[in-house]
Design a protein around this nucleic acid. Sequence first.
RNA 1: GGCCCGUUGGUGAAGUGGCUUAACACAUAGCCCUCUCAAGGCUACAUUCAAGGGUCCGAAUCCCUUACGGGUCACCA
Length: 549
Amino acid sequence: MTNKDLANLIFPNITKTVEDYEKEYPKRDLKEGAIVSRFAPSPTGFMHLGGLFQAIIDYVIAKSSGGVFFLRNEDTDKAREVDGAVELIMETLTHYGLIPDEYEFDGKIVGNYGPYIQSERKEIYHAFIKHLIEIGRAYPCFCDKEELDQMRENQEAMKVRPGYHGRFARCSRLSVDEAMEKIKNGEKYVIRFRSNGNFDNKFEFDDLRQGKLYLNENDIDEVIMKSDTMLPTYHFAHVVDDHLMHTTHVVRGEEWLPSAPKHIQMFEAFGFEAPKYIHTPLIVKKDGDSLRKISKRKDPEASMSYYDLLGYPTLAVIESLMTIINSNYEEWHTINPDKKFDEFIFSANKMSTSGALYDLMKLDDISKNIISKMSKDELYEKSYEWACKHSESLKSIIDKDVEYYKNIINIERESEKPRKDIARYSDIENLIWYMYDDVFDSKEINYEWKNITDKEEIKKILNTYMNKYFDLSSQEEWFNKVKLMCDELGYASNMKDYKKNPDNFKGNVIDISTVLRVALTSKCMTPDLYSIMKLFGRDRILNRYNKIS
RNA sequence: GGCCCGUUGGUGAAGUGGCUUAACACAUAGCCCUCUCAAGGCUACAUUCAAGGGUCCGAAUCCCUUACGGGUCACCA
């Protein structure tokens, strides 16, 4: 009996060969230097920051090089699969504008290199494994979990490196006849790759981020096919898929670096060229004094739904991640304010070498800048869309009168130096509620008076203002009148005069405008008062002022 | 424990043997401007690059040792 007989016994129905698949998925017709990248999550939970981080890199390197970005669903672990995870991944990518060129979703395959769902590629993997068995580079292993645990314990006791390697790789020494006998007897087995590496040898590995690395050769006979489902493990699926799909650059987390030697070895066993690798740093978080990987369970900001719920513009999240990905991104962006982030030429070797701390302050800053540059129409659309999903109360406010809402958010907007007070759409309601009479009337109002708190004085100021100095003809006139009133009532209209001789005055123009502001809005901090008064109009102002008693 | 990677201000970081008296941005503080707030302008914020030793005329940059942090050693990805 030969290896071929063994291969046929295990995969009797596999007739296609590796060569057949090579022909079926020919080299992509792309221009020189075009990068083919992929985002390949496993549908085990929720989309988190680290995932988006990688997807952005994939997207940017593909787009900026005129290449292809595709999505592959790595669902080989059926036990950990979670319902709806695939939908969430697709939704999140779409939400952030990172739409893959090739993908498989909802029964539809887009692209010529599919299927893009690993569980649908079983036959392909089997053909490749069959080939490996035929050439003696893979073999069935009948060791069960207990035996392997026992082996590991012994290894630890003997202080030797744990793992299925060298003399510990028992099943690798089984003859073909013995193996076939066991299979015919119905014994359970996995398929292992037969390593030809020597752990004491180093080889040069070129990681695009870290540069040349010297890693130990792999000598572990890694499991490449699981027993129950006959699905491949990640290691094997990665080799077959990224070869057949002609991925040029694999972007993956740093945690994969230690298994890179296995992957290289498998590519070599098939005679394939390995893709280029970019192992990305983990996003970490400060926990007490030490740093740790950001975690979905402990850190709400690890989940993409956090940003969605608070209403950060998607671009803000992307750009904040871009600054971590390549710190020269910000510089590039200020020089090229009109270019889209995916035109940025990413340099893997400029990526940070250690774990990056995600800074929510920085996110706020980027976000404020982005929102401040939006036109009123754009802000209206984005904030309304957000409100429809996440805030019934903001939605109802906007629905009252869209034009009025737009005018409010347009105060000090669409100008050279726009206001930067909104970091998230969820901030808006708290900034504008007092502009709505019914909302104002339904609340318990706490007037934030400052220096002038005497009710009689306040009433006197308000009455004088409405009777003699109310003027909305222009910003300048408006303020001139306020100053004139100061003179009449004994307050300093000029701050310099006031500072020189504060005792000569009852107060100053700031005190007066604060009374006008607080009586109208209840708040001592608001955008430009003139603009607010313009939106109110005389009657509504009078109405608010009459509430003061 | 073995193997691999890393360590520059509160944060992201620039830096690749002399242009560094260590960019830039965020944060923080102060001042200016100003009808409040936000914004904007200006200023401050690492005598030092984890520590020690070495190489060199010259080191954050090259070498060694130590310390600390991270990753990984599954029929999980």
